[in-house]
């Protein structure tokens, strides 16, 4: 039984050759069938994963940037809104003040004009009244004089007038 262990005793050299050739053939077959495609697939997957990680990192950064931009825009718009409201308020105040002042001056000038007009009217009325009074008094006087100036009176008046003329000549 142990004679088998003595390798040299019955060296089945054919077996060695057979196994060597078969093993090389098997290696080649496995390489074609599995080794190359599987390794390629594993490499592809590794590449894809690393790409995915990179792109995930990139998109995360982009998202952060976008969020920051949005935040900034929000703050900006808020500020803008406040400034708009402020300026509107200020403008409104200004306009109000302007209108008020305008109204005041208008009112003042209107009042002054009215006073001036009133004074004018008064003066006019006064002067016309004075004229009228004078006319009236003259008319009245003439009426009175016409009514009471009878023939006698007329005679007397003429006499007095002539008398007066004479006196005037004398002096």
């Amino acid at each position: 039984m142990f004679s088998h262990l003595v390798v040299a005793a019955s060296l089945d050299t054919g077996d060695m050759l057979f196994y060597a050739l078969c093993f090389i053939l098997l290696m080649w077959l496995l390489k074609v069938v599995a080794w190359k495609p599987v390794n390629k697939m594993m490499q592809d997957r590794a590449d894809k994963i690393s790409n995915d990680i990179d792109s995930a990192e990139q998109s995360r950064e982009e998202a952060a940037q976008l969020a920051q931009q949005r935040q900034k825009a929000l703050a900006n718009s808020r500020q803008e809104a406040t400034s708009i409201v402020d300026s509107a308020k200020k403008q409104g105040q200004q306009q109000r003040d302007g209108i008020l002042a305008q109204a005041q001056t208008d009112a003042q000038s209107l009042k002054e004009n009215a006073q001036k007009d009133i004074e004018q009217e008064r003066q006019d009325a006064l002067s016309s009244v004075r004229n009228d009074v004078a006319d009236l008094s003259i008319e009245i006087a003439s009426k009175i004089i016409q009514k009471e100036l009878s023939a006698d009176d007329q005679k007397a008046l003429i006499d007095s007038y002539i008398e007066g003329l004479g006196k005037q000549h004398e002096s």
């Binding site: 077996d15 078969c22 098997l26 069938v33």
Partner: peptide, 27 residues
């Protein structure tokens, strides 16, 4: 002139074929 052991050749072939089929089926 080379001595072949029938048992080795047959069972070796079986093993080679099994390995190949196994890997082939999986890949």
């Amino acid at each position: 002139g080379l001595t072949f052991n029938t048992a080795n050749v047959i069972s070796g072939l079986i093993a080679f074929v099994l390995v190949f089929l196994f890997v082939f089926a999986l890949s």
